[in-house]
Structures are given as C-alpha cells and as structure tokens.
Amino acid sequence: MDAALTPSQQPSVEDIEIQLLLEAIFLRYHYDFRHYARASIKRRLMQARIHFGVPSITALQDRVLHDPAILDQMLGFLTVQVSEMFRDPSYFRALREQVLPHLKTYPSLKIWIAGCSTGEEVYSMAILFKEEGLLDRTLIYATDINPDALAAAKAGVYANDRIRKFTENHQKSGGRSSLSDYYRADYGRAVFDSSLRANVVFSDHSLVSDAVFGEMQLISCRNVMIYFDRDLQDRAVGLFKDSLSRHGFLGIGSKESLRFSRHAGAFADFVPSEKIYRRQDG
C-alpha cells in the first residue's frame, strides 16, 4: 500500500483549483495547457483572476465554463505575447551569414515559425529572406494557438514607439537596407508592406496536440518551450525533428536546450552560441 502524502507533499487548494481549471479548458474548448510550466501558469492565472474580479480560481473556472465569450481574453493570459522584430539580432545575423548560404542551394524553401505570436518574427524573417534574395521562392508557415495574436500578425501593424528598437535590431542583424523601406507610417502606427506576407501562411497549430504538417528546411521556435514542462518540451522537439527535411535547421531560444530531450541525438550543433542546430541523418 502506498504511503500517505505528508502535509508538505500534498498539493495546496490553489494548486488543485489550477489543475481543475486547466482540465476544464481542455474538455470544454480543446486548448491544452495542462503540461505548461506550472509556476508560469499560476502567475498568469493570478493576473487573470484579478482582471476578471473574481475571488478564486474556482470562480474563474465557473466564468470560463459558462461564458465562452471570455475565452479569447483567457488565451491572452495563458499564452505569452512578448516579442520584437529581429529580437536577439545575433541570432538573425547567424541565420544570414551561416544558415542562408546553405538554404540558397535549394530551388524552393519552406520555413516554419512556431509560436509566431503577433508576427514580429514573421516580418523579421520575411525581410531577412528578401534582403538575401530568397523570399520569392520561400513559403513561410506562421503558427500560433491564440487567434487574436494571429489576427495581429496578419495585420502587420505596430505602434510607432516600437520602431526605433526594431530598427536598431535590424541594423545589428546585418540588415542590408533601411527598415523604413518595408513599412509606411499611418496615424502613429507602422504598417508593414503586404508583399512581405504574400508568401506567408498564418495558421492555428498547437505544439501540444497537433501533428507534423510539412517538410521544412528551417524551423524557428524561440522562447516558446521555456513555458512547457519537460514532457511537452520533448514532444515539441520530436515534432520539429519529424518536420525537418534532411539536414534542415532548427533555431530555439537562448534559454532553451535540446540537451534533455530523447530526440537530442537527431540534431547536431550548428551555431551553438545562437542555439541553431542541424538535423542529422539516421
């Protein structure tokens, strides 16, 4: 007979409430956050509880189950939408100088930006590929589970006060032109040129539950897996492995690692300092 849990091992009432809420969201709406890193989820649910003005997570669960209209707001709390164009410029410089010379040997290209958020990385990648003469023969898949984030990504409109940072990042990434060539100012906003998304497919896709949907030469999934628990990280890496073509490239976030994944052997370091890997044979 199993020994009883000591008081210190027993989950708190709040932890039980969170588990039940995540289960409810999965059963009611088929969004699965059950294997997201619990500390991060707990912090965001506390913010949601305050936002909706309810006294407990259980009360928040009641709202979510009986008022589907608040689901999009809940997704805004449960998914992290923090990005900027050419974020970590050295990553994009490494792509430009070390990865794209290999990709230029392909007659056509497919790349996947997983967890594309509100689209900053999508436009960064499109600009990078355009500057290197590859955009016309590249199909970019941009995916996220948050419909509001995908809508913002499709629009390609960002506040003017963000453009200075975007421009600095673009220059540091080795940009061959001025970022202003790619957008127009419109009443305090920067509207990025529609030509940049002509070859972009925006789509709902969950790394938690969805399957492989193509063979890619490059996958960029940065600062997404840090919000997953170990099992879900492993699933995502396996999905990337199965989605990459022979000798395809994978880029992940600076605080992320393949080291503990059972799929790690499928990848070789390519630019270790920027967490860029290459799919190995076998």
Rank of each mutant, 00 (worst) to 15 (best):
I163H: 00
I276S: 02
D148M: 11
G238P: 02
D148T: 11
M216Y: 15
N169C: 03
T167G: 01
D186R: 05
K130S: 10
S203F: 06
L75C: 09
P7A: 08
K42M: 02
L239Q: 05
D148V: 13
S8T: 13
F270D: 04
V208E: 12
Q61C: 04
I16S: 06
V224W: 12
R96I: 01
S194G: 06
H102L: 06
K110V: 04
I70R: 05
S12P: 02
R278C: 08
I145F: 07
L100N: 04
V82M: 09
K104T: 02
N146T: 03
S180R: 05
Q19H: 13
R38Y: 15
E274N: 09
L45D: 09
H102E: 14
D62S: 11
T105R: 15
G133D: 06
V122R: 06
D231L: 14
M125R: 08
A155C: 04
L218R: 10
R197I: 15
L134C: 10
M46P: 03
S40T: 15
V99R: 10
L95A: 03
H102R: 14
F267E: 05
I226Y: 04
M216V: 04
R259N: 06
A37Y: 15
S12L: 02
G214A: 10
D144W: 14
I276D: 00
T167Y: 13
A142M: 12
V54H: 08
S8L: 12
F26C: 05
I113T: 06
R93D: 11
G119W: 14
D281C: 06
H205C: 04
Q217C: 02
Q98A: 00
Q81P: 07
F52N: 01
Y158F: 14
L239H: 03
A39S: 13
R49V: 07
I18K: 04
F92R: 08
K241G: 00
S8D: 11
R246S: 13
A4W: 06
F213I: 01
L244M: 00
Q280H: 11
E256Y: 07
Q171A: 13
A266C: 10
R222H: 11
M225K: 05
D281S: 13
Y31F: 15
D62Q: 10
S180C: 05
G253A: 05
S209K: 14
L207I: 05
S90K: 11
L150M: 11
T138F: 09
R44H: 09
L65S: 08
F166Y: 15
P68M: 06
Q81R: 15
V99F: 02
F166A: 03
R34Y: 10
M46Y: 03
A153I: 08
R34V: 00
A3K: 15
G115A: 12
A24C: 09
I70W: 04
L65H: 12
